[in-house]
Amino acid sequence: MIPQVDCTVEVVCQINPSEDPQKIRQSISNILDAFELELDKYSARATSDQAESLAKIRESIHNHHSQRVYSKFLNNNLEGDSTWFYLNKQAAFANSIALCERDNESPLGPIKVTVSSENIERIIEWLTS
């Protein structure tokens, strides 16, 4: 059940000169629901105030039985009321959600997903259990 808590989701990635901004838009649409998108020549920033926007990511976590891996990343990156993780941009364009351990794992740069909430532990629990 999707937690009914206040939550902010922010997704950011750089847009390289060789990349089509519409492909970046598609990549973000493949991983996130119900978001507002700001695109400029060099970057994309999507935001949502609903935990439900993370449903595709949660579904992927469970389909790939990667709850423990995501839990580790989310807890290791936890700072105050927020946490983050990287996703592979090329995989996202191919409609696949793939975690990156480091920002240089994705050749064109990763997509950074940041989640903030006063109940961040509840969001992490929902994503990973």
Rank of each mutant, 00 (worst) to 15 (best):
F93Q: 05
S48G: 02
F73H: 07
S116L: 03
D20R: 09
P17V: 12
N76C: 04
S82W: 07
S82G: 15
V12Q: 11
A51C: 10
E105H: 12
Y70E: 03
E19L: 08
E10A: 12
D49L: 11
Y86T: 01
C13D: 04
R68F: 12
S106H: 07
V11L: 11
Y70F: 09
F85H: 02
F35L: 05
D33R: 09
R45E: 07
N95C: 13
Q22K: 11
I61M: 04
N77P: 00
S66T: 06
Y86L: 08
L54G: 00
L54Y: 00
D33T: 07
N88A: 10
S82L: 12
V12W: 11
G80T: 02
I24V: 15
I57P: 00
T83H: 01
R25C: 10
Q50P: 05
A91G: 06
E59N: 10
F85M: 04
H65P: 04
F85S: 01
R25I: 13
N16V: 13
S48A: 05
A91F: 06
F73G: 01
S116H: 04
P17T: 15
S53E: 01
S106L: 04
S66I: 03
I28E: 02
C13V: 09
G80Q: 01
Y42T: 15
E105F: 13
E79K: 12
E19A: 07
L99H: 04
H65F: 10
S117I: 03
N104R: 13
K89Q: 11
A55M: 11
A98C: 12
I24T: 08
A55E: 11
S117P: 01
I61F: 02
T47Y: 05
L74V: 01
D40S: 14
T83E: 01
N88E: 13
H64Q: 12
E59H: 12
R45L: 08
V69M: 14
E36A: 08
D81S: 14
E59K: 11
I28G: 01
L87R: 02
I57N: 00
P110D: 04
C100F: 09
S53I: 01
P110I: 04
Q22C: 08
L99T: 03
S116T: 08
